[in-house]
Amino acid sequence: MTVDLNLVGAKGAIAEAAEGKWGMSIDQDICTGCQACVAACAMENNISFVGEEDAGYGRSQHWIRIERFWEGAYPEVKATPFQPMLCQQCGHAPCEPVCPVFATPHSEAEQLNLQVYNRCVGTRYCANNCPYQVRSFNWRDYHTIPERGNMVNGTLVFPLHNQFNPDVTVRRRGVMEKCTFCIQRIHKAQDKAKSEGREVEDGEFTTACAQACPANAITFGRVDHPESLVSQLTHQKRGEKHLEELNTLPRVTYLKEG
């Protein structure tokens, strides 16, 4: 569904349908915090690792992180359910309007929050304005730090670069990045379906994190199709969205215990 952004009316009225298109549900009751999604995301999306010092200083590039807090004190202490936090692909994203160069526009076709690396000039306003704090910035050219390469006949080669996913841009320094809901996979699936003259089927493809998740805690799909798995999970009573009160219209639903 396309929305005419020129509609005159209350500001809320021009926001997208609260539903969205692609969405995700994360079952915190079965998420074991095993970090497989984090690793899978890094492998799929050419995310650079930053090393010990920068990682400890809040510069890690994880597009998805698993949060855990504590409740109570020993021996009644309890770790709160693991909470994978990733870009919520808000329908009403606070990060989008603040970019001066349209580097993080909204895609009408996918109803996702895009990050166009090649337009980004690095003002980092989007990251400040993201209430979920899920954007990561390329503070340096981590991929080409000389210590990561080998000198072969006088040239620096980086064996790790062989692993780069050709479908995903390798970001250079000074560029913001974030979870894209594996938009490259969405496109591939959509185009395959189109060439076969059909719609994308539920479960035909999924994001890297959902694909890896050993507990199947992450489900990805069309939230606007009532019969899809993600849509059914999302509409469970235990479904909850983060910081919904900010009217960001997040597309990720967290399923709580109980």
């Binding site: 952004l5 020129n6 500001k11 994203a93 989008e96 526009p105 909204h106």
Partner: peptide, 10 residues
């Protein structure tokens, strides 16, 4: 035309 979240076009 580039839409951004929750904003009027103009």
């Amino acid at each position: 035309n580039v839409p951004v979240g929750g904003q009027f076009f103009t």
